[in-house]
């Protein structure tokens, strides 16, 4: 049990390469921006990658 550092989330990005990249998730700009680019808040649509 860590006393000083509490990891609140995050999976190692490199681990998402293998099962990721299915490109079934939504296109980021379509949802609510249209004038910027925010990809980090998009949901993953690939169950294998979860």
């Amino acid at each position: 049990m860590s006393k000083h550092i509490k990891t609140i989330g995050g999976r190692a990005l490199r681990d998402t390469v293998h099962n990721g990249g299915c490109r079934e998730c939504r296109t980021s700009c379509q949802s609510a921006c249209k004038t910027s680019c925010t990809v980090g808040n998009q949901a993953c649509a690939n169950k294998k990658n979860k």
Binding site: G10, R14, C25, C44
Partner: peptide, 9 residues
Amino acid sequence: LEEGPCLPK
């Protein structure tokens, strides 16, 4: 943080 986009995305 748990189920966000993969690296390729």
